[in-house]
Amino acid sequence: MIKDLLSATVLIGIISSGIRLATPYLYASIGEMFGQRSGVLNLGVEGQMLLGSFVAYYVVLKTGNLGLAMLATIAVGALMGLAMGFVTIKLQATQGIAGIGFYLFGMGMSNLLFQKLIGVVENINGFPTLKIPLLGDIPVIGEIFFRQNLLVYLAFLLVPVAWFVLNKTTLGLKIRAVGENPEAADSLGVSVTRIRYFTVTLGGILSSIAGAALSIALLNVFQQNMTAGQGFIAVALVYFGSWKPNGILTGALLFSMVNALQLWIQVLGIPIASELAVMMPYILTIVVLTLSLKKGKGPSALTKAFEREG
């Protein structure tokens, strides 16, 4: 039975499941990373994901227009991000507590809207599988990587883009400066407030898209509380990835593939209790977090509100 795990079907299965499961984490974690690199911890990712996934689903259900759904999702995410920014940057509320508040708000609001506007669980036609010409015909590799939907491709494209913005642009430099030493950045004429509003809003948009990736691309359905804690895993993955896009990519893929692996272990009947199998990705996360936190160090100004002196 153990050697069944090494067959081609299983390996292809694990990698392609892993890619799909990792997609929402990539959006949400990279959004969260921008916020944290500028000094804002947002624990409301889960709520932003839920509201984003509901809005995208609702627009597709009513209009069938995927582009419109994405616009609505982006708008809702931006609003949630701006609100989080207002509470933590302008009003200087404790970031952790404010984030929990936004999580509860997003969850409650998506529940309420679902019940009032829809009420019945229904299928929709979301983003179809988009086979990349030529590349999609390569055996094995084509099947795994080049026969996914648009939001999956964009999620993986986001990783190098985020790396470039963070490390090779003036904006990225400002974000990092604000997160490490806001006083110094401020004295050099960088607006700490404006940068933080920008990153938190961007984080809201990306979390919202993470939710939409579930409801209108991967699953094509909405159910209350359907993100099931993924928003919190996304926050953990930022630490896991030492606040770097490639680290987050590694973490998201590792977590998702171990999750896919444990499903295969159960399907192939390898005698491990299901309770232990489902714990595998979480145990792995804890172990890696413990090891990585020793070497990596987060942004110095993380969770600290900034108030201009004088």
């Binding site: 499941s17 499961l21 699953l219 509380n225 099931a228 999750n259 896919a260 159960q266 192939l268 299901s274």
Partner: peptide, 23 residues
């Protein structure tokens, strides 16, 4: 039989079904 460890994780339930189908 697979147990996914959650009553609400729709995404993992979908992957469990996909895994059964590919098996």
């Amino acid at each position: 039989v697979t147990y996914i460890g959650s009553f609400s994780d729709v995404a993992l339930a979908a992957e469990a079904a996909t895994t059964h189908l590919s098996a």
